[in-house]
């Protein structure tokens, strides 16, 4: 049985489709990733599945219950870690967990045990009676995750769980996510714009762009879309790199994209048997030196680039993207 089934799910804000006829299903016990840039519609999908927003069109079910008609049933099954941290600063760690636990009607004694157990799991026992307002961002996010675990949810929604965290805290949260998935058999839906995170955690990944799922498969299979037999990804280090140089590489027939990593380093995606030679020749013809060449394995970033034709990066890229698509689409979450 599928833990989640989504059929033509659509959410319009005015005339704007934030989520546009999305269909997918998530198996029980799976970690399913929704990967896409900010404003792609990930959060809106999570909000519809967790009964917080009503779909404009289409249906979705969680644990076999319809998210609109049987929202009460759905709420009993799910836990939500939203992008905004759901904790009260002026309450202590224990009081926060107690408050949310009581909303799920967990009896007092059991709840106390559960709180201790969860705090131990994320190494926050020492701060049990400290106000959450005094916590670091990493500590708050760990609290935020265990808060969603209080009712032993069958399905856990994680909306950008590592947003704004330092690398070490991100690693801790990811390990914790994997642990609860394995040990508690919790089905997890996770949204992220971090490729590595999706790659590391998710059994399957849905790539989402402009409210539509543009690809959906395991990470390995997705990468195969790029690393076909004749696909090459090169990282080249060239001193005196100029925009002209980049342009001339980009204009090569075999090259599908070029991105600049820093002032001397570029990454080139290309196709064809002779791509490697063609690129090196082009650089030589421009009388540039090549300090190093690396032949890279494809990443999810490359997959995204290949499928959508633009990068998952910052707003500057989004503007370029809008020009390319010849439509001005405001960002909606």
């Amino acid at each position: 049985m599928h833990a989640i089934e989504v059929n033509n799910l659509t959410k319009r804000f005015g005339t704007l489709a934030a989520v546009d006829h999305v269909s997918f299903s998530v198996r029980e016990g799976e970690i399913f990733g929704l990967l896409g840039p900010n404003g792609a519609g990930k959060t809106t999908i999570i909000r519809m599945l967790s009964t917080l927003t009503r779909p404009t069109e289409g249906t979705a079910s969680v644990g076999g219950y319809d998210v609109v008609k049987e929202d009460g049933k759905v709420r009993e099954l799910i836990g939500l870690v939203s992008e905004k941290i759901i904790l009260y600063d002026r309450l202590t760690a224990k009081e926060n967990l107690w408050f949310f636990g009581r909303l799920y009607n967990i009896p007092g004694e059991l709840l106390n045990k559960k709180i201790d157990e969860l705090l131990r799991l994320v190494k926050l026992t020492k701060w049990k009676n400290s106000q959450v307002g005094t916590f670091s961002t990493g500590m708050r996010q760990r609290m935020n995750v265990i808060r969603a675990m209080l009712n032993m949810p069958e399905v856990l929604f994680l909306d950008e769980p590592t947003l704004g965290l330092d690398p070490q805290s991100s690693v801790e949260i990811r390990e914790f996510i994997r642990k609860i998935n394995r040990e508690n058999k919790v089905t997890i839906i996770l949204t992220t714009h971090i490729m590595v995170e999706a790659d590391m955690l998710c059994d399957r990944i849905g790539i989402i762009d402009y409210g539509k799922i543009v690809a959906l498969d395991t990470s390995t299979n997705l990468k195969k879309l790029v690393s076909g037999a004749d696909s090459t990804i090169l990282e080249l280090e060239i001193p005196n790199l100029t925009t002209d140089m980049i342009h001339s590489i980009r204009s090569l027939k075999c090259v599908s994209s070029v991105s600049q990593n820093n002032s001397t380093c570029i990454k080139v995606n290309a196709n064809g048997d002779d791509a490697f030679d063609t690129i090196i020749d082009a650089i030589r013809a421009n009388k540039r030196k090549i300090i190093s060449v690396k032949n890279l394995e494809p990443t999810l970033e490359d997959v995204f680039l290949q499928i959508t034709g633009h990068e998952v990066r910052d707003k500057a890229d989004q503007k370029i993207k809008m020009h390319r698509h010849h439509m001005a689409k405001p960002r909606v979450r």
Binding site: S50, T51, L52, G72, R75, E76, I78, L80, S82, E83, K84, I85, I86, L87, Y88, F100, L103, Y104, R147, N151
Partner: peptide, 13 residues
């Protein structure tokens, strides 16, 4: 605004 209302809205109450 700070998002904590979602914590209550998502609970079966």
């Amino acid at each position: 605004e700070i998002g904590t209302l979602d914590g209550m809205m998502v609970a079966p109450i």
